[in-house]
Write a protein that binds this DNA or RNA. Structure first.
Lengths: 339, 339
DNA sequence: CTGTTAGCGCATTCAC
DNA sequence: GTGAATGCGCTAACAG
């Protein structure tokens, strides 16, 4: 391990000068700068990151908590996070929690051990353990998409889920649908409530009563969509339109509907959320709500770094624009409302 | 920032005792242990990770280099990496390179700055820069799926791509196909050569000449599959079977074939690689080669940590088993070989 | 502009 | 079993 002292001896200067040359070259005369750079090159010297961190008290790393890695929507957010972080000189510690609270706690405690300067939470839970909660003063935390539960208020980058759900519902109603099924993801989250409220508000305006038996699901998986459709099709009056709370669910729904010998959208219309890449290549291409996932990740980092630098936040909640992509999985009802 | 000294004063012992109590409690008498633990609790003390790292010379982190995050196959590998790493007390630094060499260099240099103890490469390039190459003695590096180019030999966890490609080809030939198209991913990689060689070897055995004009593609994207099909369909004799080098390409191919008014598998059979989750829910469900991605990630970590601990490696190349999943995107040729 | 000095927070000899 | 002392590799204050 070649350290700063070796370099300083090689260059015939003090360690301080070496440090300065590397950190702020303008503070050093051109001649010594040259000498030092030669020595650095020759010795193959790279400053020890950990040592620098101990001195400065900054790790220049952030942790990202994500419930699972296989959801391409999350990955797109993390892509944005990664990119923005790198540009700002931060690196990203990956915290795949698999929904486990103890894992969340473990990752979150990285903030307490100076291992990371900030945390981005993609899930909705308060990530710290009971024990740690006392120590969490104003630690930099930002949540994306979801809102973190609990008393502490953290900045959040999110979508107007209420409005998005309204847009979807309006779109379907414009095709004449009046009988709706919903296949939800994580029931306990704010997203769920906002979206459901959005749907119900439009239905109420249209004089349609939402039948709670038409609400199924419980997790953001393909299988949820498959099972959801199976359940909805057993109803006395199956829905003519199914709103899925993410694209994976919608993919499962498309699959199950076709498997039942029904056609999309002639028999049943299907919508998703997220606009995952494959969504456009489904058969039929999926009507879905596009979320600016990449941009959300980027913003999360910017806001987080503001917190880390103790700069005042202009606002504690940012709402990014969605757009409804009307593709071919939605269409007019082909038969009267009665089945 | 509450440090070890505060705790030692609070407990009325030396800092050394506090350190010992936390690291190796058995070295300390039960009474003092109790005192220290109380003080730790009371002060809300957590050891500074960076300081520990400087002392021990170990970061207990590993970097993972991945060309892009949106490919669910990579994500499954990283899930395995993450899991295994956490179990062994390591954390994962995410290095999304987007295929850029300079980004690779930047991440790889983390090994030189003591920021990470080891590196896992999912791409095929030698990750260090020209400048750093001299310094890379025996730094712990493992590659997964791909083999790292260059003189240095690193351990690799991979699939028998040659055999897998042979299995796919045999499967198609058993259905009577004799006219094959191939839509490839990254052309420059070992994977590409192995798979292509596997296909050609079977064709040769069957007395079929592979027409190089039937080889298209160039990246692992859905769009590549779409464009690939468009090209293959312009050939004088379009293929009756198309082998795609990953599932994303195959998804694009399915889409394009259907868009051209042809049916899968009646007109054209399609196969993929990876067995991504959505593959089973395509229309028709995709015949593909299942790779134990999660397991590959786990093994990569185990091998890497062996290197980090300077334990001898039993073998420098591990080949994991694949399995061909025959689903509905492949079937018998419905018309004579001539178009 | 440069060198000296003094730590950052912790782990580890070596005495006792 | 415990404490004092030393140093990991680096940066920052202060002289000069």
């Amino acid at each position: 391990m070649t350290n700063i002292k070796k370099v300083s001896e090689l260059a015939g200067v003090s360690t301080a000068t070496v440090s300065r040359t590397l950190k702020d070259p303008d503070l050093v005369s051109p001649q010594t700068r040259e000498k030092v750079m030669v020595a650095v090159q020759q010795a193959g010297y790279r400053p020890n990151w950990m040592a620098t961190s101990v001195k400065t008290g900054k790790s220049n790393s952030i942790v990202v908590l994500v419930p699972n890695l296989v959801n391409p929507f999350f990955m797109r957010i993390i892509e944005g996070i990664e990119q923005a972080a790198q540009e700002k000189g931060y690196s990203v510690l990956l915290g795949d929690t698999q929904g486990s609270a103890s894992r969340e706690h473990e990752y979150a405690s990285m903030l307490l051990t100076n291992r990371a300067d900030g945390l981005i939470q993609l899930d909705h839970s308060f990530p710290f353990s009971q024990d740690d909660a006392h120590l969490v003063g104003n630690l930099p935390v930002v949540s994306v998409c979801e809102r973190i539960e609990g008393d502490k208020k953290y900045p959040v980058i999110e979508l107007d889920n209420y409005a998005a759900a309204r847009a979807v519902t309006h779109h379907l109603i414009s095709y004449g649908h009046r009988s709706f099924g919903v296949i939800a993801g994580q029931i306990s989250s704010q997203i769920h409530h906002d979206r459901l409220a959005g749907i119900k508000s439009v239905l109420a305006e249209e004089g349609i009563v939402f039948d709670e038996a038409m609400l199924v699901g419980g997790s953001y998986k393909i299988e949820t969509g498959v099972e959801g459709v199976q359940q909805l099709l057993t109803r006395a009056q199956p829905p003519t339109a199914i709103i899925c709370f993410n694209d994976d669910i919608a993919i499962g729904a498309l699959y199950a509907i076709k498997k039942h010998g029904l056609r999309v959208p002639q028999d049943i219309s299907v919508t998703g959320f997220d606009n995952v890449r494959v969504a456009a290549y489904m058969d039929p291409p999926l009507t879905t709500v596009d979320q600016p996932a990449y941009q959300m990740g980027r913003r999360a980092v910017e806001v987080l770094i503001q917190q880390i630098n103790r700069q005042p936040l202009t606002r504690t909640r940012e709402i990014l624009p969605f757009s409804l992509l009307e593709r071919q999985s939605t269409g007019p009802v082909s038969k009267p409302n009665q089945h």
